[in-house]
Design a protein around this nucleic acid. Structure first.
Length: 590
DNA sequence: TGTCCTTTGAAGAGT
DNA sequence: ACTCTTCAAAGGACA
């Protein structure tokens, strides 16, 4: 990790596990001070107790806690063995080089915002409105093409090397260099600023959270308080919720992590899934739905409030930025919003991302402290149900294009006749829904039959690809089928919302997949608003459901790792876990 | 009513 | 050690 070395390896581990000795490193380069973690937490609180104040006052005494590596109890639930993060992945290494107040390692969102503001000072006006000066919203095409995102902490090399500055293509087409939303008026900017500034969610939460602060370890600060609220156990947080005092925005931004039935009414439609899953068992307000047979098991669930996972950095970022994006784009579909946010996340500066990483890390710490026995496995019951359901679905009818999946387009001669005629594969029928490789071919494809989107399917098929074809695979198709001479537009804005004039017709574009947001599949070659149609570019899209692509991707990652010159040159490599199943396509520019 | 979509990151399970 | 899978948020869409 480059920053680790930059920082002299003084990973600013401010973990505050129970009463351990922590070495606080004076940010002025002074002496190390050994404190008990509890003291440290208290100090942390003092830093965070008032987020707004934290912006006004530049703290002089804050220290960057540096745990002694020898006595470092694993942050990750003290789980023995290697931590998921490389040792250097203590946000401190990222924090340290940054100017105060962030350098103290006790960042908060307000600090983040203020820091962001300071960083973008010349662009302050545009920071909110994301005007022309905005690093990723307000570029002309050339800028985007030649200027990669300011930093790319989160962009692995396999993305960068393929498409510097051009993150993956979006399912939702955000065409070239078109920033859909006009610059916000000053008034609007103020509104937007209120979203983005410390007075936004976290601060509001914090003030709201004061009501229960006493109920919790007083050592936790305000921003942490908000997290405490998320993590708060049922009893403490039920009843009049602090959320009631929150703005609408905040309300949605900070659902409780614990979702007992009592709290359901506090969350209208968000958090519904898990809540429903658990609270429908746990909530006995009506009780009519409960059968005696399931009640015994449900009683156990009832006693256990659903403790949600702590939010990761990106989730925190999304929470903060979602409303902003929604307002800017007038989009409401979360899927689309998330894509935008994902691109913004990638375009986010390293230090800016670091703030969220830090925040997320502290979320995990708090969560760990509050629920030392909690494990993400606890929430895995739903997964089992879903998986079981999927299995039953897939096990039923696999009327897939087996031959195509098997042999691909290259070997059509081996296809059975019906397959060649685009009829049901008799070979597969003959085998009677066999298991094994064949069914594997289709396991991930769901129960899609011969798709209407023949091209897409065909493109995705070779090698037994996933049939999430319209979403992903067609990228390969376009890459293969498009003429190499196809003019490419190197500046497809990945960070922008499509202009309304472009976005509006999307509603009438027939999606190739029933659950896909309408007209939002830019890889659908039939979609006139697809990335390719709009940009003429080649989408080097990888189907993350395609094992081959995954392998290729992993290979690429490995190669990138090898050629990256070591972690010092590629912090992202260690920074980010290798989520091999993640689709990480990039628009390749030739 | 429940699930999907879509994003990234964390973490556990599985190999 | 590595890969895979799931969940976390969000809200519209869809079965």
């Amino acid at each position: 990790m480059p920053h680790a070395s930059e920082d002299g390896g003084a990973a600013g581990e401010d973990a505050c596990s129970s009463d351990e000795l922590i070495v606080f490193k004076d940010e002025n380069g002074g002496e190390d001070v050994v404190k008990r973690s509890s003291d440290k937490v208290t100090e942390e609180k003092s830093d965070l107790i008032d987020l707004s104040e934290s912006e006004k006052v530049s703290s002089n005494h804050r220290c960057s806690p540096v745990k002694t590596s020898s006595s470092t109890p694993d942050l990750n639930r003290s789980k023995p063995g290697p931590t998921p993060h490389p040792p250097a992945f203590n946000m401190g290494y990222l924090v340290a080089p940054y100017p105060s107040p962030y350098t103290n390692g006790t960042t908060s969102v307000s600090m983040m915002s203020s820091y962001l503001e300071s960083q973008r000072d010349p662009l302050t006006a545009s920071k909110i409105g994301l005007g022309p000066a905005h690093p990723f919203f307000c570029h002309n095409g050339e800028q985007l093409g030649t200027q990669p995102p300011p930093a790319h902490m989160g962009i692995p090399p396999y993305q960068l090397d393929k498409a510097p500055g051009l993150p993956r293509p979006s399912m939702y087409p955000f065409p070239t260099g078109q920033y859909p939303y006009p610059l916000l008026s000053p008034d609007m900017s103020q509104v937007a600023a209120s979203w983005h500034t410390p007075a936004s969610m976290y601060h509001q939460i914090s003030s709201a959270g004061t009501g229960f602060r006493g109920s919790y370890p007083p050592s936790l600060g305000t921003s942490l308080t908000s997290e405490l609220y998320r993590f708060s156990p049922t009893g403490l947080m039920s009843g009049p919720s602090p959320h009631h005092h929150l703005s609408h925005h905040t309300h949605h931004s900070h659902p409780a992590i614990v979702t007992p039935g009592v709290r359901q009414d506090l969350h209208t439609d968000s958090n519904h899934r898990l809540q429903n899953d658990h609270s429908k068992n746990s909530s006995c307000s009506d009780g009519s739905k409960h059968h005696d047979t399931v009640q015994n098991s449900n009683n156990q669930d009832k006693k256990k409030p659903h403790i949600k996972k702590p939010l990761n950095a990106f989730m925190l970022y999304m929470k903060e930025m979602r409303a902003k994006v929604v307002a800017e784009c007038t989009l409401k579909e979360s899927a689309a919003i998330n894509q935008i946010l994902g691109r913004r996340w990638h375009a986010l500066g390293r230090e800016e991302q670091a703030k969220y990483y830090e925040l997320a890390r502290r979320e995990r710490q708090i969560h760990m402290q509050l629920y030392p026995d909690w494990s993400s496995r606890t929430n895995a019951t739903r997964a089992k149900k879903r998986k079981r359901k999927q299995e039953t679905h897939d096990g039923g009818n696999n009327s897939m294009k087996k031959c195509r999946a098997r042999y691909g387009l290259d070997q059509q001669s081996q296809w059975c006749k019906p397959c060649r005629r685009k009829k049901r594969c008799i070979r597969y029928i003959e085998s009677g829904g066999d298991s094994g490789n064949q069914s594997d071919d289709n396991q991930s494809t769901g129960s899609l039959g011969h798709s209407d989107n023949e091209e897409a399917d065909s493109a995705s098929s070779p090698g037994g690809l996933s049939a999430l074809s319209s979403l992903t695979s067609p990228g390969m198709l376009t890459q293969a089928s498009l003429s190499p001479a196809t003019p490419l537009t190197p500046h497809v804005s990945e960070y922008e919302c499509p202009p309304m004039s472009i976005r509006m017709p999307l509603a009438v574009v027939v999606p190739t997949r029933h659950h896909q947001p309408v007209g939002t599949n830019p890889h659908d070659i039939n979609n006139p608003l697809s990335v390719n149609q709009l940009t003429g570019g080649v989408v080097n899209n990888k189907c993350h459901n395609n094992p081959r692509d995954q392998q290729q991707q992993q290979h690429q990652q490995q190669n990138d790792l090898k050629t990256s010159g070591g972690p010092n040159n590629q912090p992202e490599q260690q920074q980010r876990p290798n989520n091999s199943n993640r689709a990480l396509p990039a628009i390749s520019v030739t």
